[in-house]
């Protein structure tokens, strides 16, 4: 059950990344996860779904790609501008 904590960290990281951007709502979050994965994707999605309520990534989809570097990385955000 690391995944809830990591989902919270991911949300904080996304919020942080939005600070220097015009993006106001996130629709797609692209992630890179090395093999063997150190987390269970389904658990992360579950945690993200709960914890993202009332944040800019409330309705975002998580896309997992296979990363070559060891660890878990946020590599892309798609979304809409504010005004």
């Amino acid at each position: 059950m690391h995944e809830f904590a990591i989902a919270q960290d991911l949300i904080n990281l996304i919020k942080d990344s939005l600070k220097d951007s015009k993006m106001k709502t996130v629709t797609k979050v692209t992630l890179a996860l090395s093999d063997p994965p150190m987390l269970v994707k389904e658990s992360l999605e579950l945690g993200f779904g709960v914890l993202a309520k009332n944040t800019p990534c409330e309705n975002a989809r998580l896309i997992f790609t296979k990363g070559s570097k060891k660890g878990f990385f946020l590599i892309g955000l798609e979304g809409e501008d504010g005004d």
Binding site: S17, I75, G79, E80, D81
Partner: peptide
């Protein structure tokens, strides 16, 4: 719009 970045999620806790 799209933002490309590389950020280590696990570093947030650290």
């Amino acid at each position: 719009m799209e933002i490309k970045l590389i950020k280590n999620v696990l570093e947030v806790n650290e």
